[in-house]
Every structure is written in C-alpha cells, then in structure tokens.
Design a protein around this nucleic acid. Structure first.
Lengths: 241, 241
DNA sequence: CAGTGGTCTAGACCACGAG
DNA sequence: TCGTGGTCTAGACCACTGG
C-alpha cells in the first residue's frame, strides 16, 4: 500500500499545495524552516500570488504550515493533527454496513430537565423539555440507543410531528439547522438499562457519544448515543483522500 | 447561553457567509431552495464575485450548501455534519489540565509484526518492526497507555535516537510528517495488563483510540492509545468558535 | 446552447509585528 | 518602519450540465 502519490492535481492551487507538501514530507523543507514568500513562489510556479496564497492557506489549515504576517511562512514545528468526523444519519451507517434498518421509540414524554442535562444545555433546571429514548436496529439487532432531550422552543414545527412515529435524529437534521455543536466521546460500562436495550450484559464497555447543538433560538437538543459493543467510530483525516 | 450571534465578522467574505448562514438557519431560505447566484449576491452585498464565491464555498464545506455548475446553489437537504477532532500531543493535554507531565517507557524491542498489526499497516506479516509500550502520567497518575509499532523504513533517523529516552509520540510528530492518517475510536473492557498499567481494575470501560499514519515511504506507525477511565474526548465542530 | 459555478490573474490596499 | 501575509476587485476564460 502506498500513500497518496503527491501527484499533480486538478487545479493549479492544488498542484502547488501538493508540491509544497511533497517538499515538506521529503524533508527538503524541515520543521521550523522558513519557506520562500508568496511572491517568490508565485514566480517559481508561474502563478498569481492569490493562487499561491490559496495553496498555502490550505496547508496552513492542515496544520503543516505556520503563517504570520511579517514573520513569513514556516513549516510547523508541531503539526497539529486534525481529523474530521462525519456524523452521518444512523440509518445511513446501518445501511452502509449492508444491514436492514429499523427504529423504535421506547419512551417519550415531556419532563422537567434534570440538573446534569440542564447544565449541558445551559438552561435553568426544571424547564419542561421533550425527552425520548429510541433504539436503532440493524437486521433486527440493536445498533445504537438514543437518549435525547429536545428544546421545543428552539425546534419550531416539533409540535406538528408525531414523535412516536418520526425518527428524531433525521427530523432534526432535516428541519433544524444548527449553528454550533459540541461532541464528546467516552467509554462507559453498560448499566442494566443499557444492557437490556442493547441486548448485552451489564459491565460491557460501550462507546458513548454526547452531542449538543445550538441554533439562534438557543439550545436545540442534547443526545447520548450508545453504540453496540465493539462498534468503531472511524475517520479519515481532514487532509484529502 | 446563546448561540454564536451570527454577527458581522472580520472579513467581508465571512460577513457574507454569516449572513447567508443566518438566512438558512432562520428558514428564510429552506432546505432544497435555490438561492440567488453568485452574481446577484455580489450585487446585493456590494462585493466582487470572487468574494461571494469564497463565502459560499465555506458554507458548502460546512455542508450547509450544495453547489453545482449550471444547477446553481441550493440549501442542502441533508446537511452533513462534520466535526473536527484535534489530536494534540499528550503532554499538552496533560499540561492543559493543569497537571505535571511525566512519561515512562515500559517495553521496547524489535519484533516480527503480528498478523493483526500487519493488516492494519498493509505490510507482510512477520516483518521486523519496532514495538514499544509507554505510559503517560499526569501528576504521577497514569493518564494514557501507548502501545506502538513503528516502521523504521518510513522513519529515517529513528536509529539515531534512544527509544528508551525519547517520547515516541513527540519525536514522530516533530520528525516524520505524514500524508495520511486513519483514526478510530472504540470502547474496550480493560484486560489485566491495561488495568495494571492504568492502575485500575480489569473490566473497566476504557476509551481506545487507534491511529495509523503513512508518509510517502509507506506506513509509519500504528498506535493504540488507551485513556484512563472517565476520559472524554471532545471537540468543537469545525464551524467557528 | 447558454447559465452557472470554478478558477485564475494582475493589481491594489491594508494590518500586523519584528527589528 | 517596512516586509509579509490577508483580503478585495474587476475581468476573464473554462467546465459542466440542464433544457
């Protein structure tokens, strides 16, 4: 297996970015080195400075370059490593794995928000939110358990839908764009309820993802997603194919 | 707590992006709608088309817009959700948490690579790689256990360093830029060795991160990072502050 | 074919910050 | 102070694709 063969690319800016990346990776330009300024590179690559700028910005976003006015552009001493996690709709994850998707709501009610959740959302404790629990299945076996609180004041249109029927995840994705999201991963031992819902045993290590989203009306929803045992959450990194 | 008040921004392109985002979030432009083309927006915002293009590209990268030649720009029906995970150096994580960092190598040898690891790296089974285990401490308590395989052929300069002394994570970050990385998160019950190294109990749910990196010479390293119980891996979402 | 986004260019001015 | 990156502009041509 070879790594991406830093070959040419479809656009001039990408071609330049790839060439600069090659020089860094092959240690022609080393960590901490200052590289030629935009004007010089523009001459070398026979491109406009704006094009070179675009290429270098790309590499800076990747964390490979450190750019500052007046100081110039240097190869990052400590390349920041960014990975992009794509949060797809659960159904797509299941179907991509070649399994038949199904979904069941196991609980739904309006309820005063407990302290822990209130803190996470930044709402006063005891406010009335919609609380629901649901299970996503792949080929009839539990794939993911969803425990969700929804703030109806930030999700206009929610009253009109039948929560027992709809898939909250998809409904929210499709109908309530968000401005900001927070995401955490952690591992927890399954408690009795987790174990029952996921058809596994208490104590089993489970991957847990918490996601909270906000829009301009305030906090929209916070959800605890518990994956079936053995699930892996994978990514490419933010650096192209 | 309010969400980011989609206010003006430091650059004209960002100002435009924020305004367009606001119109989408406030449902003035709805999922699937076609929005005005670049030329029209350029007139409305009194900007050059290139500036509008930059703004819209930004929103398309976020997944909020779907742009195609000739077809125009539409509000995405199914906004892809991307989150950016920043993998910092362990020492920085520890120090940011206000703890004193220390590090200890507990094992190091050259060894034929076992099948599972070989597959992950895309190397033939039995090839001789460097294998090491180390523990990262915060205030003297185990923070993370590192189990790493390094391919010396892709890490020039490795022979010259004292593996027992160096911090492999930092050495690699500083000296071997990579082109591609794969990352997965999972949860595992601690086995006896994990439990001993992390000073916890067998069976405890642990967050595990696997990371494999490649450069132009081939696979560089694959590492299994096991975090102390209760560790959370958090992110912003790549959309601003 | 023609409308739309994708990209490039040459030139300009500005903002930051090291010396 | 002044070199460097950050950004914008007006104009141009190209590439894709719907009608």
């Amino acid at each position: 297996m070879t790594a991406r063969p830093a070959g040419p690319a479809s656009s001039k800016a990408l071609t330049i970015a790839n060439e600069v990346r090659r020089r860094i990776v092959e240690r022609q330009w080393r960590q901490g080195d200052r590289i030629p300024d935009e004007a010089d590179l523009a001459i070398e690559f026979e491109a406009a400075r704006a094009t070179v700028n675009k290429a270098l910005q790309l590499l800076a976003d990747e964390g490979l370059l450190d750019r500052r006015r007046r100081r110039g552009t240097r190869v990052a001493i400590d390349p920041i490593r960014k990975a992009t996690v794509t949060i797809s709709v659960v159904r797509e994850q299941v179907e991509q794995a070649g399994m038949a998707y199904s979904y069941r709501v196991v609980a739904q009610r309006r309820s005063p928000v407990p302290a822990e959740i209130a803190v996470r959302l930044g709402l006063p404790e005891g406010e009335i939110l919609v609380h629901m629990r649901a299970i996503h299945y792949g080929d009839g076996r539990p794939f993911q358990v969803e425990d969700r609180w929804i703030n109806p004041r930030a999700a206009p249109g929610l009253e009109a839908v039948d929560i027992w029927q709809m898939n909250a995840n998809e409904w929210l994705v499709r109908n309530v764009p968000f401005l900001r999201a927070e995401l955490t991963f952690s591992a927890e031992n399954a408690d009795r309820r987790d174990a029952r819902l996921l058809q596994t045993q208490a104590g089993q290590a489970l991957l847990v993802m918490h996601r909270t989203t906000w829009n301009d009306l305030g906090p929209v929803t916070t959800v605890r997603l518990t994956f079936r045992p053995g699930h892996r959450f994978g990514t490419g990194d933010g650096r192209g194919p």
